[in-house]
Design a protein around this nucleic acid. Sequence first.
DNA 1: CACGATGCCTAATATCATTAGTTTTATAGA
DNA 2: TCTATAAAACTAATGATATTAGGCATCGTG
Lengths: 188, 188
Amino acid sequence: MPHPAQITRDALIARAWEMAEAEGVEQMTLAKLAAALGVKAPSLYHHMRSKADLLRAINERTTQQLFAALHETLAAASDAPAAERIHRLAAAYRAFAQAHPITYMLAFTTVEVEARPDPTFQEQGVLPIQAVLTELTGADASLAAIRGLLALMHGFVMLEINDQFRRGGDLDAAYTQGIEVYLRGITG
Amino acid sequence: MPHPAQITRDALIARAWEMAEAEGVEQMTLAKLAAALGVKAPSLYHHMRSKADLLRAINERTTQQLFAALHETLAAASDAPAAERIHRLAAAYRAFAQAHPITYMLAFTTVEVEARPDPTFQEQGVLPIQAVLTELTGADASLAAIRGLLALMHGFVMLEINDQFRRGGDLDAAYTQGIEVYLRGITG
DNA sequence: CACGATGCCTAATATCATTAGTTTTATAGA
DNA sequence: TCTATAAAACTAATGATATTAGGCATCGTG
């Protein structure tokens, strides 16, 4: 059985990502993960340095997919006015978080430094979005503007994922309205 | 030694809260917590049902303290105009999160249902804040308005705590500006 | 055709939370 | 004042967990 590797690092990460999203991070144990790959737990250490290392890979994957979805959305709306592009972007952001709540949350709330995604991922991903905002704010204010926008989107979906909006009402409308308000404040 | 309880539930929770904030949640093990209280780990189970139960108590304590700080801030600024009160509130919110980053994050990102704070805490705490916003938006829009404000504040401090703002710049100014923009969007 | 590295395995360890069963002691009632 | 009871501590044990050590099979390369 040994030598021709039965699993690759990519397969390991992909499976771990799926398992975390499907059953929760704390349910994604190395034993279960190994079993799903037809292997025993210690064998995983030939493809990763530690579980923190695996989590970092998962988080980088999540970050990449999030920004890929956002860029795709921006590309598809490239002829719309800037405010409309931001609205589409915000919708895509929330849709991603709702589709992958656990891995999304994991990527942005990891305390262990070892498991944090490489900073360059986020920086690279944010730049095209910031470019759209620059159309509305000018270059000087665009860094603060994107930070506010990211905070608004991230905060909303985090509260939503963690079930902190328990007073009913239309959450879709509240989200859209929040973005609208923010954009109005920027341009006004 | 036995019978006259050497620890109370309140002392247990207070110590656990301090230890979590000081050393990180994952460092707050029952063995260490018990040792800090001069007792062995199994004895803790006379004062709690499970660790999830303890975490829930910690989170409720955090939530209460956060809202207490916010209400205090509002009370101290009761004669200021509504927009100014919101600014003070936002500053107090961020100050609390920065002073207690670990327990703050824990309270708002707990996946385990067992460990989630009782919903009524948040609801009660949010109402006075919503009242201020109602002055600016009218009653109809105030629920969505407070959700946006909470999302903005929570998102910003969460990103900040998790070191996701790595591109330098003045974060104090970015936060203030974000709140300003949001308020302008609401009133404009 | 052998040999060495690769990648799997079993076995073992340390650290968790949690449970079972025992021991001690303060207090309430005789 | 004495004693029985219940509270609250303890030790010991269990089952997960990640991780390490060491052995063994197998494939590609000389």
